Computed example of a mutant assay.
Amino acid sequence: MAVIALALLLVVWGVANGKTEQSQLSIDAMIEQLDDDEIHALVMGAAKGVEAANFALEERHSTPLYCEPALSKMSGAEYTDMFVTFVRRHPEHGKAKISIFAWVMLLALQDAYPCRR
C-alpha cells in the first residue's frame, strides 16, 4: 500500500513538473534536484508507509521490519536527516533509481533501528 501511494505521489509530482522521466532519476540526483520541502514530503511518505507496515506486523505478532524503541518518535526532519545520511554512507543506494525509494527508506530504518535476534 505504501509503495503504491509513493508511486502515485511520484507520478503526480513528475506530471506537475512536466517531467515524466522523474522515475528514472537516481536517489542521489533526486536529493540534489529537489528542494528541502519536496525531499521531506517524499521521505515522510515512504517513512510513514514503512512505519504502518511495521505496526501491522507487530499487531499480528510477526517479526517487525525494524525495531524502533517504544518511546522514540522521530520528527519529520529527523527522518529526512536519517535518510540522507544513510544514502551518503551507502553510495550504492544513492545510485539506485527513485522507483525503489521506499525500499531504501526501509534499509535506512533497519540500519538505525536493528532488531535484536
Rank of each mutant, 00 (worst) to 15 (best):
A108S: 13
G49M: 01
M105T: 10
I31S: 09
M74H: 02
A46M: 05
M1Q: 08
I31P: 06
P64K: 04
A5D: 06
I39M: 14
M74P: 03
A47W: 01
A108E: 00
S26P: 02
V84P: 09
E92M: 15
A41N: 04
A102R: 00
A77E: 08
D37E: 12
M44S: 12
Y79G: 09
K97C: 10
A29V: 00
K19N: 04
K73V: 05
V50S: 08
S75T: 11
E59M: 15
D28V: 04
M74S: 08
V84A: 09
E32C: 06
E51W: 09
G45H: 10
Q24T: 05
E78C: 12
R116F: 07
T20I: 00
V12M: 14
I4W: 10
G14L: 05
L107A: 03
L9N: 09
L42H: 13
V84I: 12
H90I: 05
D28F: 04
L107R: 15
K73T: 02
S75Y: 01
L9V: 08
K97P: 12
S23T: 09
E38I: 06
L65H: 05
L25T: 01
E38F: 09
A5Q: 12
A16E: 06
P91H: 12
A5R: 12
S26F: 08
L9F: 15
P64W: 11
E21A: 07
G45F: 13
E38N: 07
G45R: 12
I39P: 11
L8C: 14
M44L: 15
A2H: 11
R60K: 14
F101Q: 00
E51N: 08
A77G: 10
K95Y: 03
S23A: 15
E32A: 13
P91S: 01
H61A: 14
D81G: 15
S72A: 04
I27D: 06
S23W: 11
S26K: 02
A16P: 07
Q110K: 13
E92N: 15
S99N: 02
Y66L: 08
S72Q: 14
I4A: 14
H93W: 10
K97T: 01
Q110C: 06
A108C: 06
T63C: 09
A5W: 07
K73N: 05
A47D: 03
L6E: 00
A53T: 00
F55D: 03
P64R: 04
D37M: 13
T80C: 14
Y113F: 15
A41R: 13
A47T: 05
E68R: 15
L57D: 04
D35T: 02
E68K: 13
S26C: 09
W13Q: 03
A77W: 03
S75C: 03
G14K: 02
G18F: 04
D28E: 00
V11D: 07
H90W: 12
A70M: 06
A47R: 01
H93E: 02
S75W: 03
A29F: 07
I4D: 08
A16I: 03
G49L: 06
L8T: 14
P69M: 07
S23M: 11
I98H: 03
R60H: 02
V12R: 10
M1I: 07
F83M: 05
V84Y: 10
R88Q: 00
Y66K: 04
D37V: 06
D37L: 15
L25M: 13
T63L: 10
S75I: 09
R88D: 06
A52Y: 03
